[in-house]
Amino acid sequence: MKTRFLMATAAAAIVMVACNNEETDNWAGEIRLSSGLEAQQVTRSINPDLQGGQIADEVEVGFFINENASNPTTTYPQNLLYTANGNGSFDGSTVYYPQSGNGVNIYAYAPWKDGLSLGGNYAFSIQENQSTDEGYLASDLLWGQPMKQKTDDPGVYESANPVARTKENVNVTFKHLLSKIQIELTPEAGLTAKDFRGATLKILNVKNTTSLTLTDGAISEASGSAVEVTAATYENKEGLTEENLKAAAIVVPQTITKGTKFLKVTLKSGGELYYTLPSGADDADLVLESGKIYKYDIKVKLTGLTVTSQITDWETIGEGNPVKGEAVME
């Protein structure tokens, strides 16, 4: 099946070595890991490039490596824990290719969790506070395997498992499995950036849990109770400008019924401004899909609510038209 990755990908290179040094560069057969995120999507209000072209520094990544044989001669510890160093490689234990000469199958995911097995599922919940880098990264569910371009269709990638013995890096491409909500606020009608000092921005009424099948990267429908996800808490400082009134948060793919309150800005004064999904006869429910970005350009004023464009799927970095609207004080 053709697979096009429209989200960030990461290359994890593993090189396994034989017990005798067969290569002139002293390669011992170890699996060499490296990482890089392909068409990265995720932006932050503080750091727009966080986990963009690479898995972020200190993110823990889990690997499953198995010999490609019905009766393997080499077994590996499962759910290996590696730590990304932010520049495309990982820190962790060294593992080697089988002496039998067989290839290996490699699967990976992040963030790492103890107690998982390749044949099982990963019950995953996003963080309700994503206003910090830590909360945001802990919500960015990634899954990957080695990928290669198809020779007859270079624009399409397919699985490269099993990986043959090689001293070269094995590129493990990670994709973002959840949905990203990206928001830019513009104060209008008497409001200025200073009115947002000490304010919070939240995404409302989203279910927070899913389950990842570790063998193929599939995720289940969203489950759990509806929660509020804090995307940003704006500092109460003089330096806050309209350029800083941005935020992004990650949510589980799901359908949100039209007419639902979806975004909320709470000002330091206690005023609450809401963005509610349109509920007209011609409006549809909001369907959040895996690996897509949903951009909202919200004009904030004390009265009125207008939507001037529609949500577009997130496909490549920096492209796509934001949803334009206004928030109303209640």
Rank of each mutant, 00 (worst) to 15 (best):
residue 215 T to E: 12
residue 212 L to M: 05
residue 240 L to Y: 11
residue 235 E to Q: 10
residue 255 T to S: 08
residue 246 K to L: 10
residue 248 A to S: 14
residue 239 G to Y: 13
residue 246 K to A: 11
residue 218 A to Y: 07
residue 251 V to A: 04
residue 228 E to C: 06
residue 245 L to A: 07
residue 249 A to T: 01
residue 212 L to P: 03
residue 250 I to S: 02
residue 236 N to K: 11
residue 213 T to Q: 14
residue 240 L to V: 12
residue 224 G to I: 04
residue 230 T to Q: 05
residue 255 T to Q: 07
residue 243 E to R: 15
residue 231 A to F: 00
residue 244 N to D: 15
residue 218 A to D: 12
residue 230 T to K: 09
residue 219 I to E: 10
residue 212 L to A: 02
residue 246 K to H: 13
residue 231 A to Q: 01
residue 253 P to I: 02
residue 224 G to M: 11
residue 216 D to V: 09
residue 248 A to Y: 06
residue 256 I to N: 06
residue 217 G to I: 12
residue 230 T to Y: 00
residue 242 E to V: 14
residue 214 L to H: 04
residue 223 S to I: 13
residue 243 E to Y: 14
residue 249 A to Q: 05
residue 228 E to G: 10
residue 244 N to Y: 13
residue 254 Q to R: 04
residue 218 A to M: 12
residue 210 T to W: 05
residue 250 I to K: 02
residue 240 L to N: 06
residue 237 K to R: 14
residue 257 T to D: 12
residue 236 N to D: 11
residue 238 E to Q: 10
residue 255 T to Y: 06
residue 248 A to F: 06
residue 256 I to D: 08
residue 248 A to C: 01
residue 227 V to W: 01
residue 218 A to W: 10
residue 211 S to P: 10
residue 240 L to C: 02
residue 241 T to E: 11
residue 218 A to K: 14
residue 213 T to L: 10
residue 229 V to H: 03
residue 243 E to V: 11
residue 231 A to Y: 00
residue 255 T to H: 06
residue 229 V to G: 01
residue 243 E to W: 12
residue 229 V to T: 07
residue 220 S to N: 11
residue 234 Y to F: 11
residue 244 N to H: 15
residue 228 E to L: 02
residue 254 Q to T: 03
residue 211 S to F: 05
residue 226 A to K: 15
residue 245 L to I: 06
residue 235 E to R: 03
residue 226 A to R: 13
residue 238 E to H: 06
residue 255 T to F: 07
residue 252 V to M: 07
residue 216 D to M: 05
residue 223 S to T: 14
residue 231 A to L: 07
residue 216 D to I: 05
residue 256 I to Q: 08
residue 217 G to W: 10
residue 233 T to S: 13
residue 257 T to Q: 14
residue 234 Y to Q: 00
residue 243 E to S: 15
residue 220 S to G: 03
residue 227 V to Q: 08
residue 256 I to Y: 05
residue 218 A to P: 08
residue 239 G to R: 13
residue 248 A to M: 01
residue 249 A to Y: 01
residue 226 A to S: 15
residue 227 V to R: 04
